[in-house]
Write a protein that binds this DNA or RNA. Structure first.
Lengths: 164, 164
DNA sequence: CAGCATTATGTTATATTATAACATAACAGA
DNA sequence: TCTGTTATGTTATAATATAACATAATGCTG
């Protein structure tokens, strides 16, 4: 289940379908885990999924407020639920959230984020985790969790820059 | 200059001297770079160095306020200077700061932080960076910078746990 | 299907982390 | 010593996140 190749989602895919599939998968996952994928959680998940880019909690809040009143805890609770269910990840260096691309496979992942267009790709590379584990083990450190966020230029933006 | 081994600073070292040496090194580094290691910057650097643990900006602020008035920008400006000089690092997942152990060698580093005692160790492991570079290169991603923070149990706390 | 415990959401207030904008002071070089 | 530059002081506020308590929805159990 480990993905070793970065996949940046481009603008020209069938987003309607992509979105629908993601929600179906999320629903099924919650069902399996005996958790409720409520309307609010679905809405927040959709917003995180929508742009295939990191989104801030208050950006989500603004969207919710278009439908009526909403306050920060509403957003943060939904985000906490989605984080715990493994449906989204938090990007610590951006204080932002991204949708998980393989929620069925519980993992922490490594994130590659474009500083130009903010596109992101998620990886669960054994190459990287093994390197970390090895360094840790050599010193007697017991790894519990990790935060790995790589910033740079996605292939598209890199080419644009080179041709400029 | 790459350190491949984690070193957690234990409580039983000559802290007076450790502190003095660190400040001397910081002074020299600034001198070399034509930057001013002012009293305020020295004070903030000392506070970050002091406990060999991540420290928050407002924790530093409280210390400064013991000497008289002080406001957040004072702290953040000093921290920004120290970050840019490579004398400290920021731990994104903790919103906290740690002293750099090898400021003469400009690097981003990987951080191993104990969830029990908060001791930290800094690494600049080519094993890890190479793994990341390789994953990136395969996909055409150009790495600019990274955030790597590993949480877990330091050797001491791990042993304590096992014997409990 | 009524009652009840549990889980989820609403609401208000506030904590925590960080920056903007402008004023003053200290310093370094001419 | 003057002057431009760099550093710090000060006030206000932005951005991110949580605490505490009230209400509502859900689903289990009898």
């Amino acid at each position: 289940m480990t993905s070793e190749r970065l996949h940046f989602i481009s603008g020209d895919h069938d987003h309607q379908r992509c979105m629908k599939d993601a929600i179906t998968r999320a629903e099924e996952l919650c069902l399996q885990q005996g958790q409720r994928f409520t309307a609010l959680r679905r809405r927040v998940f959709s917003l995180v999924w929508r742009q295939h880019k990191p989104i801030g909690a208050y950006e989500i809040l603004e969207e919710l407020q278009r439908d009526g009143r909403a306050a920060p805890p509403t957003v943060y609770r939904a985000l906490d639920f989605l984080l715990e269910s493994g449906l989204i990840h938090r990007i610590a260096s951006l204080n932002a959230y991204v949708a998980c691309l393989q929620p069925e496979h519980r993992h922490e992942g490594q994130f590659f984020i474009c500083t130009s267009c903010r596109a992101f790709a998620e990886l669960d590379s054994s190459l990287i985790t093994t390197a970390i584990e090895q360094n840790a083990r050599e010193s007697g450190f017991e790894v519990q969790r990790h935060t790995i966020e790589i910033m740079g230029l996605c292939p598209q933006c890199r080419l644009l820059k080179e041709n400029a």
